[in-house]
Design a binder for these strands. Structure first.
Lengths: 237, 237
DNA sequence: ATAGTACGACTGACCAGTCGGTCGGCAAAA
DNA sequence: TTTTGCCGACCGACTGGTCAGTCGTACTAT
């Protein structure tokens, strides 16, 4: 982390400008194939200038990583806060936020995978810790919603922490396979299908009976044949 | 793919020897950090010799990838065949096989992630096609089991293809998060928890009522506090 | 003037892939 | 049986190209 002269704000802004450019380049080409010059070009600055703000390429990578995690975490936190007190609405909002984020960043999936690989292998524990911190944060949100759903009588009793972590894994798994499948189907539909499976299992009889026909419809129609838009189908009904 | 002299068998054996060495090195260091010399050393041969069997580093990477996929696919296929006719047993066997494979190859998770990233980015469609082929194969197995479960009256009606693909995503997601979590908990327990959630949702009332107490137990105890062995707990009961 | 900032040509390290040479084994000749 | 000659698997020093990071210069603002 080099010196930090001029105004604090200007420094941070330029740093951010570099991070933004780096995200795009890293995503398009991958960490190793991305040359510092590419990033400099994308940011409209000279290569040397990057080194005024980041000591090494690795440090820049890490900054990109942090920035991304922060963004996602903040979006989810906001979604959770907006509906505080209404667990069903919160659950919906969380899912919608996650889907939106995933769809928006589908092109970044390769770099996300590289992040994970890097984190698992790196000597620098920062990467892994950052992931676990995020899992912690999101897990806490999920567990809170789950316990509210249980308290309200909508859900049967579950270990909420386990359930929340499972959900995080499932979410990433669905996203990953959706990308690996060439975004062939509608991500919303896949999530809804998943929700129907889980919902059918965890809802208390009363709620389940209420939603039975919707669940049945989702379960029997699946998501694979949905109108394959890579994204942009805010409300597919 | 260079010439293929001597006996076919000897050629294949040496090729395999290189692949085996490469798996370990790629897994430990990652694709980019692994030098051809490392692989040569690990295989106990000279660097130049590798190029008698593989034209480029990429081609070797791809061979490693194929080998791995083949192994997994074959194991799953075998598990499915062994219990043909008994869908519940087949489902169990598939899950056990998947868990065993995942646990055995936990150290290779980073390279699996790199594979995926590479597949998504590579100009060579082989990688992505190979993944999709595997999803196809495993998906067909899963769909068959699901439809048998439905036919037998154990499961409610679902779109079996969607369900199978969802399961593949979920499996990978759980595995991924288990690894990212430092293999802190027992993978078996996580899968059982998942099964309980799904089972509770899809089982027909009769079966569900029969298994109710087991499901309740799994759902309420979760998997996060399980006796954290990274692997080796064949039957934790 | 001068301190802070930007730059990009340059350097040194690195590494995939090459290529000329070695050597063990085998078969034909002696 | 021994000698000679050949083959091709094997090797690793070397090459050519690449790129992260440096540094002397130039610009800008005060």
């Amino acid at each position: 982390m080099p010196r930090r002269p001029q105004s604090e704000a200007a420094w941070a802004a330029k740093r951010q400008q570099i991070i933004t450019a780096a995200i795009g380049e890293f995503a398009r080409r991958g960490f190793h194939a991305t040359k510092m010059e590419h990033i400099a070009d994308a940011a409209g600055i000279g290569k040397g200038t990057i080194y005024e703000y980041f000591a090494t390429k690795d440090e820049l990578f890490l900054a990109v990583y942090d920035y991304w995690m922060d963004t996602y975490e903040a979006a989810m936190q906001r979604a959770a806060d907006e509906h505080r007190g209404d667990p069903l609405a919160t659950a919906d909002a969380l899912i919608e936020t996650a889907i939106a984020f995933y769809q928006e960043h589908a092109a970044y999936a390769p770099i996300l995978l590289e992040f994970w690989a890097h984190a698992l292998r790196s000597d620098d524990p920062h990467f892994l810790e950052r992931i676990q911190q995020m899992k912690q944060t999101l897990g806490a949100i999920g567990a809170r919603v789950a316990s509210e759903l249980i308290a309200s009588g909508a859900f049967r009793k579950v270990d909420t922490a386990s359930f929340a972590q499972l959900e995080l894994g499932i979410s990433d798994g669905i996203f990953l396979h959706w990308v690996l499948d060439g975004q062939r189907y509608n991500l919303h539909d896949a999530y809804r299908f998943r929700q129907a499976v889980i919902g059918a299992g965890l809802m208390r009889p009363m709620l389940r009976r209420m939603l039975e026909s919707k669940i049945t419809k989702r379960l029997t129609s699946g998501f694979l044949n949905s109108n394959a838009p890579g994204a942009r189908s805010k409300r597919s009904r």
